[in-house]
Design a protein around this nucleic acid. Structure first.
Length: 278
DNA sequence: AGGATTTGACCAGG
DNA sequence: CCTGGTCAAATCCT
């Protein structure tokens, strides 16, 4: 079939994906940076100073920080965890018991300014490929809470990001996402996730890097769960869209936002579409 | 300089 | 007590 055909097909997939994710805006697609090592909380900073103060915002200082047991959550299995149109800020990472890869925690970047409660966790599936480059790594992304933030109007932009710029040979796909950085990440999983998370779009600096794993996005599966814990690396991974899952989306937290218009002419999304269509 | 990410510690629930 | 989720200082990038 022709490239055009593939593109059209991919276009549909893209549209579906958009709806699923009700992408709204995408902010400035700033790229990740990498922090580095540190020695953890100041040996005695936390409560010593009188119990509170450390941060005006956070009321952490050793007191009531209720572990928010997420009410409703939705998860999806995808090879492109970053592909959701929202801007997320990573606030933690944790090696999960029994899981081969660490789980990363993100919250909406507007959580601070607008108090948006949306959060998500991204964890690479144990059985996901990627390491050898043969299969795209799969990630389980769990969304919790709904976005109450308002889209950054002017920045409304399509969400396809770097994923599209993928032209990386399978063999080197995995590690390439970090080769931009000097410092090797000890956690390749994290590196992969992070490298792609911020990207959301287009014309800015996003696709510039063009280096990221090359995920095939055809396998994305949505599911819902009342318990965030259900997903500890045990879900099935399907290779195609599941109609049923689409419906579940209705009760996904948050409104379904209309898909962002995607200029199909000329941007790298084609690469993505190709992957998706094949 | 400002903001994002990293990462070990802290805390609460099971 | 163990594990998962969150905090926040340090670090790095733009």
């Amino acid at each position: 079939m022709t490239t055009l055909g593939l593109q059209l097909q991919g276009d549909e997939l893209l549209a579906q994906l958009r709806e699923l994710l009700y992408l709204p805006s995408s902010g400035d697609g700033r790229r990740r940076r990498q922090g580095s090592k540190k020695r953890g909380r100041n040996d005695n900073e936390t409560n010593d100073n009188g119990g509170e103060e450390s941060h005006p915002h956070r009321c952490y200082s050793g007191k009531i920080r209720k572990k928010t047991k997420q009410q409703k959550s939705k998860y999806l299995v995808t090879s492109v965890p970053d592909f959701d149109g929202y801007q997320w800020r990573k606030y933690g990472q944790k090696q999960i018991e029994g899981a081969m890869y660490a789980r990363s925690y993100y919250r909406c970047t507007r959580s601070a300014e607008q108090g948006c409660p949306a959060k998500r966790t991204v964890q690479r599936n144990d059985d996901s490929g990627g390491d050898d480059g043969s299969n795209p790594a799969k990630y389980t992304v769990v969304y919790m809470g709904e976005h109450t933030c308002t889209a950054n109007d002017s920045l409304e932009a399509p969400v396809i990001l770097e994923t599209t710029a993928v032209v990386v040979p399978a063999a080197s796909a995995t590690s390439s996402s970090t080769n931009k950085q000097r410092r090797p990440q000890h956690d390749d999983d994290t590196a992969a996730i992070n490298s792609s998370m911020g990207g959301s779009c287009s014309s800015t600096t996003t696709t510039a890097t063009g280096i990221i794993e090359s995920p095939a996005t055809s396998d994305i599966t949505w599911s819902s769960s009342d318990h965030a814990d259900d997903y500890s690396g045990l879900f099935p991974v399907y290779d195609s869209w599941a109609p049923a899952s689409l419906q579940e989306m209705e009760d996904f937290t948050g409104p379904i936002r209309s898909p962002v218009h995607v200029p199909t002419d000329g941007w790298t999304i084609d690469h993505f579409l190709l992957h998706a269509a094949i």
